[in-house]
């Protein structure tokens, strides 16, 4: 887990809109180790999807990367994804970094059979031997616990939502990528299917040892999947920590707010706290710490100066002037028995 496959340095992305520049992500830096899973959590519009689209350079035309670099390493060779030629970029996509989008329901071309879509992907990256492709496809379909023979010849409309999602995961690892981005992979699926998908993912990751960037609103899922968690707010990473640290000892008031807003079975309704206010306007963001208008701990300092991302304990970074106050507040809230962590960490 030491070798880094992806290192994002100071990445900033803006969207040019009629009303002005939208700062979708600002100065984001983190690295991803081989086989590691990092979860990005945060509200809608916090820049999670923008960040992940930038990794495969599929941002919409209105987006512009204003600073930063994305370093990708394979076999000791490091390249900056942002300076790849269009041809190299096409080769990079899926082969090195696959992205499983939100809403896999329409991820497959409705007029082609599943086997054709696997073969297309392989052929686009130079693997043309039909026997090799077929063997690999069937193996992966089996790995995601589908009936390989049946799905292989099926059209997308002949499959259920959960089947399509699993077929898409199989397609995602067809070319043995080092990084798989999963953007809300289980939304719109029922709870049992979600469970099955997560199990399949864990098993595949164990077998194929790829790294995952996991984007989710679902904190429980993030807690279960991730090795490390990054909280994003208004386009910035405001806290980054190993998963247990993040959920047991959040340092940033926004992370604490997210944890508090998750309903629990044994909780009275009054204890459920939502974060007051609305996500900030990214065209004209608040001065200083962008969270201060919604923060119960905010002081004049927060209003004037943005806090840097500081490492408080090894591997635990947070950008807040008042982590001590957050620590005091969370002790009254965090109940150790509620946050479960599976045996992987």
């Amino acid at each position: 887990m030491s070798e880094s496959v992806l290192r994002i340095d100071d990445l900033s992305i803006v969207y040019r809109t009629a009303r002005g520049l939208v700062r979708a992500t600002s100065h984001v830096s983190f690295s991803l180790a081989k086989g590691e899973t990092i979860a990005l959590i945060g509200e809608s519009g916090s820049g999670k999807t923008t960040l992940s689209l930038a990794l495969i350079r599929m941002l919409p035309a209105a987006a512009q990367i204003t600073s930063g670099a994305i370093h990708y390493t394979r076999n000791g060779q490091t390249r900056n994804v942002l300076s790849l030629s269009p041809g190299d970029m096409r080769a990079f996509r899926w082969k090195e970094c696959a992205m499983v989008f939100q809403g896999a329901q329409n991820a497959f071309n409705p007029v082609l059979r599943i086997r054709q879509q696997f073969a297309d992907t392989a052929a686009a990256h130079g693997i043309k031997d039909p026997e090799v492709v077929k063997a690999r496809t069937l193996e992966l379909l089996r790995l995601v616990r589908l009936d390989p023979q049946r799905v292989y010849d099926a059209y997308p409309h002949e499959m259920s939502g959960g089947m399509k999602q699993r077929a898409l995961l199989a397609l995602g690892v067809l070319l043995d990528p080092q990084v798989v981005i999963l953007d809300e992979p289980t939304t719109a699926l029922d709870i049992l299917t979600q469970r099955a998908i997560i199990d399949v993912l864990n098993e595949m990751q164990k077998r194929l040892n790829f790294s995952i960037i996991f984007i989710s609103h679902d904190l429980a899922l993030a807690a279960e999947m991730a090795d490390r968690v990054a909280t994003m707010y208004a386009g910035e990473i405001v806290e980054l920590a190993p998963v247990a640290e993040m959920f047991y000892r959040p340092h940033h008031p926004y992370t604490l707010g997210l944890l508090r807003s998750v309903p629990k079975l044994d909780q009275r309704r009054d204890d459920l706290v939502s974060i007051p206010g609305d996500p900030p306007n990214l065209i004209d963001p608040p001065s200083g710490c962008k969270f201060h208008p919604r923060c119960q701990f905010a002081t004049d300092h927060c209003h004037q100066e943005a806090p840097p991302l500081v490492e408080y304990t090894p591997g635990h970074f947070a950008a807040c002037w008042h982590t001590d106050k957050v620590a005091a507040a969370r002790s009254g809230f965090i109940d150790l028995k509620e946050v479960k962590k599976d045996d992987r960490s």
Binding site: F92, A107, T121, A124
Partner: peptide, 15 residues
């Protein structure tokens, strides 16, 4: 979605 996914899969533009 399937067109975005096809681009993300690195398929050649002609295909």
């Amino acid at each position: 979605d399937y067109v975005s996914v096809a681009r993300a899969r690195g398929l050649p533009p002609s295909r």
